[in-house]
């Protein structure tokens, strides 16, 4: 039971990390507001289900759609500007959403949060979601969309000279990322069964970014591994759990300075690559 619970929580967070991977890892967009999208997804699904009697699948779909729409609305004014503005405005967004959730207490329960959702999300659904999301992310990474992401990350001006609509592409990236993140939030609400406005503050958003860097910008496999280690760590090493974030921070600084490609240095763990490695290439 204990291991099951650990696996569930770790996998939930891995979905969030995958959401961030597309924009921060591949495209180089930093958002300190992804925690807000987790909250948006969680609250959208919970409110739709609890207050409006929406069936569970519809509640999940709504979370995804609202996440994407909000991503669009936030992206429009900010993604045309320098990257820092995007970072800072998403930071503002996370505070704004938190304040809004507290304020709209009739709908959200305010500081008391929401509870009483039925447990509709178990390990099979979470792991299934990871497989699907990884498949989608990887499909995107290995064709046009992913190439354009990396080109934009490396050199926006050169990318636009090659015919890439940088602004539109970033908006698409942000929408997809936000949709995935909101979906993760919805799963969270129906697995943990309790949500409150302070659950995903800027620090949680920051961790998602940081884990992406530890795993490596060019490696989905690395990111999944890093996320799994980090989020299951505390469960197995309770006695130093409180030091987990301090430890993470130290590890990150060291990785970035001495191994900037991340743990796996951009390697994807695919059957073909593994076979090639065994052959000693």
């Amino acid at each position: 039971m204990f291991y099951l619970k650990v696996l569930e929580i770790t996998s939930l967070y891995t979905i969030l990390v995958l959401g961030v991977y597309l924009m921060t890892g591949l495209t180089g967009l930093f958002s300190l507001g992804q925690g807000a999208f987790v909250s948006i997804g969680a609250y959208t699904a919970a409110i739709a289900y609890m207050n409006f009697g929406a069936p569970f699948p519809l509640a999940l779909a709504l979370a995804v759609i609202i996440g994407a729409i909000l991503g669009f609305l936030v992206g429009i004014p900010t993604l045309r500007l320098r990257r820092d503005y995007f970072l800072l405005v998403t930071f503002c967004l996370s505070e704004m959403v938190r304040a809004a959730l507290l304020y709209l207490s009739q709908l959200t329960g305010g500081a008391l949060g929401m509870a009483g959702m039925p447990k509709r999300v178990g390990l099979p659904l979470i792991l299934g979601s990871i497989v699907v999301i990884t498949f989608i992310t990887y499909s995107l990474k290995r064709s046009r969309f992913g190439r354009d992401c990396i080109a934009i990350r490396d050199d926006e001006l050169a990318a636009s000279m090659m015919g890439i609509n940088v602004y539109a592409h970033k908006i698409k990236v942000f929408m997809i990322s936000s949709a995935i993140t909101a979906y993760g939030g919805a799963l969270y609400a129906f697995n943990i069964l309790f949500i409150e406005p302070n659950l995903f503050n800027w620090l949680e958003s920051a961790k998602l970014i940081i884990i992406t860097f530890v795993g490596g910008l060019n490696s989905i496999a690395g990111v999944i591994i890093a996320s799994t280690i980090y989020y299951s760590f505390g469960e197995f090493f309770r006695f130093i759990d409180v030091w987990r974030d301090v430890l993470l921070a130290v590890v990150v600084v060291l990785v970035i300075i001495f191994r900037p490609g991340g743990l796996l240095q951009g390697l994807e763990l695919l059957p073909s690559k593994l076979r090639a490695m065994r052959r000693g290439r």
Partner: peptide
């Protein structure tokens, strides 16, 4: 101004995207 994180082949492909 080539894209550092893309292979030579992908640098080519980006220009056709």
């Amino acid at each position: 101004r080539l894209f550092r994180n893309l292979s030579v082949l992908d640098n080519m492909k980006v220009a056709h995207d």
